[in-house]
Design a binder for these strands. Structure first.
Lengths: 348, 348
DNA sequence: TGCAAAATTGCAAGCGCTTTCTTTTTTGTT
DNA sequence: AACAAAAAAGAAAGCGCTTGCAATTTTGCA
């Protein structure tokens, strides 16, 4: 026993009457140990309840068997799914996972990227979604340094210019698809809420939104494009602002929210304004969080298969595959969308 | 640079023309270094981008500056809050946090408790809520061993017999309070959904439930006490089962769900059966998850202040305070509860 | 039975850092 | 200018493990 109360390889060796080398070999299942010795050592290990120190192993083998994952705050359950997926996959390969929330990336005294570097993790997955622009800048700076220390895989919509292994979201594709679904139902006043004007990572949603409108030969109305953070509260405020800024007859008949959290924020305000869903207003979210199907009415959304995504990121990290891939997605239509209430085209 | 691409203390020492001892002293802000030397060393550290290896430090100092936290799967956003709270508090004290989900505790080849032991963490927080009974048994066995290696703090409703530092939930207290609120509104057929019959940790809710009924001199009706897992899907099934098993006039006028996830499951089924909330059925959940206030109608619930709880657990762990404390809670009444629709007492 | 080859086992260095104990340098005092 | 005390800096051991290489034991075969 050392002062921490742990038995070391020395105790085992002594008790078994062999050298630590032999113990180490038994531990690793090397076949150069005679059955008799192996048996004896294994017995002692069990008896002494010996567990090799991952720390010492880390020092020797230059490997910590731990992966890092940097995610936005977990208050969005979405990220919990990514973590779960990553965790399960990692442990299949014998790795633990240390989770570092972005929360305080920009704090002067603290930087998760550097904490990772100090901890000599074997690799790190970084989700760059919904990153505040100032954090994005910081990130790019740190990323270079971090990459010297360990392999990095990025999750999210990352500019082509950043040449990292990435699992990318095809935002523009699915946004266009959503707009298409809505116009097919007769919607012409379609709002899009979420994201930030300067967001270099997220602009592709706007590309898809614009493309969808264009395809249906609909005008782009600035009032329907509201920027806000990706939280339910922010969605609430954004929605209220939009409704207040327009005469009711100009209110949108459909709202696309950047994610499910924002969607329920919008929905709450819609109810407060007496709008029925979907009769008066259709709503679409994104992420297919667990509550989406339990929402009243059930929320249409995009399933981004986050759990699988997390697992995929780990595989990518461990395999050293440096390519860019695209994330899977699936449009899930539920009762929160319906035919446009009062299509402008009808009254004209 | 070693083969991992990291500079070591030796490179710094060499470049600065001092011994590694001196570098170490600078690193730790020891005051036995002359200003001139310190300056030079600091410059080299910056220039070489040197970051001391937490691994090596761990080996030397017998301290990893990492805490562990074992939580049920994060799919319940509640646990994400605990994690956040713990994480923020931990980093204030210079600790990282490794997260281990229970998910596969019972897996033969894998045991988070032992992974923790191998990693020589500086302490661990274990949430024992909603633990499957078989896992609970395993836990008790492992706990003893784990405790030899590192301090442990438990979160949840733990039997007095387990003498660990604990932050405990006063289930019976708040359940009784909830039942009280409902009976005050005239409810007499009050269902309670969730938990398992054999759950040794969770039975106190039943104690409170029974006490509440007794206080109002109401009968305990077995049909209204449904056991199920703590997920939305399970809540759905449980609710459906209960409604199907009774003639509508015996349906409960109020449902207490063991948590918000179960509550939205019940709600979904209630809607499907044409019940209006709260006119026909009142619903109360627990946890005050973010979606509770965005639910339609807003969901009554118990706020268990999980974020603060996580932080408290870390403080407890680091301070070595071995006592048992009770978690804070607050009943949050929202529109999902209302007067009993058709009080039996009226018609009698 | 004797000896080379194969199978076991052990020695010792090294992973990057902290820390105790020395040694060297600087400072202050007479 | 000389010397003790204080300050600064370094040497070396040790944290618990892996691993290349050497030493020892066992085995196979003549």
């Amino acid at each position: 026993m050392n002062e921490t109360g742990n038995n070391t390889i020395y105790e085992v060796a002594k008790e078994a009457g062999v050298s630590i080398t032999t113990v180490s070999r038994v531990l690793h299942g090397k076949d150069t140990v005679s059955p008799k010795t192996r048996q004896k050592v294994e017995a002692v290990i069990k008896q002494l309840n010996y567990r090799p120190s991952a720390i010492a192993r880390g020092l020797t083998g230059q490997k910590t068997n731990t992966l890092g994952i940097i995610l936005p705050k977990l208050t969005n359950p979405n990220y919990a799914l990514i973590f779960n997926g990553a965790y399960e996959e990692a442990r299949k390969h014998g790795y633990a996972v240390s989770l570092f929330p972005w929360s305080s990336l920009s704090a002067e005294d603290y930087n998760p990227a550097l904490m990772l570097a100090e901890r000599r993790l074997d690799g790190v997955i970084i989700n760059v979604e919904y990153l505040a622009p100032e954090d994005a800048v910081l990130l790019e700076r740190e990323l270079k340094e971090l990459q010297q220390y360990m392999p990095v895989v990025l999750i999210g919509c990352v500019p082509q210019a950043l040449e990292y292994p990435t699992i990318n979201y095809k935002y523009s594709e699915w946004m266009q698809k959503i707009v298409g679904e809505l116009t097919a139902l007769g919607h012409e006043r379609i709002a899009f809420i979420g994201g930030t004007e300067e967001d270099r990572y997220d602009f592709r949603r706007d590309v898809g939104y614009a493309a969808g409108l264009k395809e249906a030969r609909l005008p782009f109305v600035g009032n329907y494009r509201i920027y806000c953070k990706a939280t339910a509260e922010a969605g609430e405020n954004a929605m209220r602002e939009m409704l207040e800024s327009l005469q009711p007859r100009y209110w949108p008949t459909a709202v696309i929210a950047i994610n499910d959290m924002v969607a329920i924020g919008c929905q709450k305000v819609a109810f407060r304004y007496g709008l029925r869903i979907p009769q008066d207003l259709s709503i679409v979210g994104c992420d297919n969080l667990f509550f989406a199907s339990f929402n009243n009415p059930p929320l249409s959304t995009v399933d981004t298969k986050q759990q699988e995504l997390g697992a995929r990121a780990v595989r990518k990290l461990l395999s050293g595959d440096g390519s860019r891939e695209n994330a899977e997605w699936e449009l899930i239509l539920r009762e929160s969308i319906g035919k446009a209430a009062d299509p402008v085209s009808d009254t004209e």
